[in-house]
Amino acid sequence: MHDYLHSDDKLLVSFTIEGDQKAFGEIVRRYEKMVARTIKSMLGDIQQADDIGQETFIRLYHALADFRGDAKLSTYLQRIAINQSLNEIKRKGRFVSLFYQSDGNKETFVDLPDNNSESSADMKEVVDMAVKELTPEYRVVTVLRLIQGYSTKETAEILGLPLGTVLSRLARAKVRLKEVIEKLI
C-alpha cells in the first residue's frame, strides 16, 4: 500500500502509469482547487466549469504516459486548464461574463455598476468582474499572474510565450484593470 499523501508528483505519476487509480485520485485531490481557480476565473462560476475541470484531469490522465517530468506537473496541468478554458470561450463565441458582450474585436460594456453602489465594497467581486472583462489573451496572463500568483517567467513558461510578450500583455491588462476597478469601486 503506497503512502499517496506523502508521495511527490513524479511518484504519483509513475504509480498512475502503472495503472494505480488511487494515485491519480491523489493528483486530482492535490490540484483540484488550483484548476478550479484557473477555470472559474477564466469562464466564471458556471455549470460548464465543472465539466471542463473534469475534462482537464481526463486529458492529463491521457497525457501522463508522455509526461517526462521536464516541467512541474502543476505547470503541465495549468497549461491544459488554460487551453480548455480558451477552447470553451472560442466554442461559445462569446465571453461568459454577464455584463460583457463581444462583437468581434469591438468591446462593449454592459451595465457596470457605478461608484458608491453597495456592491463596490466587495473587492473579490470587483476583481472577478474586472478580470472577466478583459479579452482572453489579457485575461489568461492576468489569471496566472494575479489570481494564481505565478511569476512572469512561470506565466511565460505555462503559456509557451516569450517573456517580453507576457510582460507587454500584463502591462496592458494592468491599465485596463485599473480603468474597470476604478469604475467599480
Binding site: E32, K33, A36, R37, D50, G53, K124, E125, L146
Partner: peptide
C-alpha cells in the same frame, strides 16, 4: 481580493 473558487463536493 480573490474568490476562493472550488468545484462541487463530489468532483473527484
Amino acid at each position: 481580493a480573490i474568490y476562493d473558487y472550488s468545484f462541487g463536493n463530489d468532483f473527484r
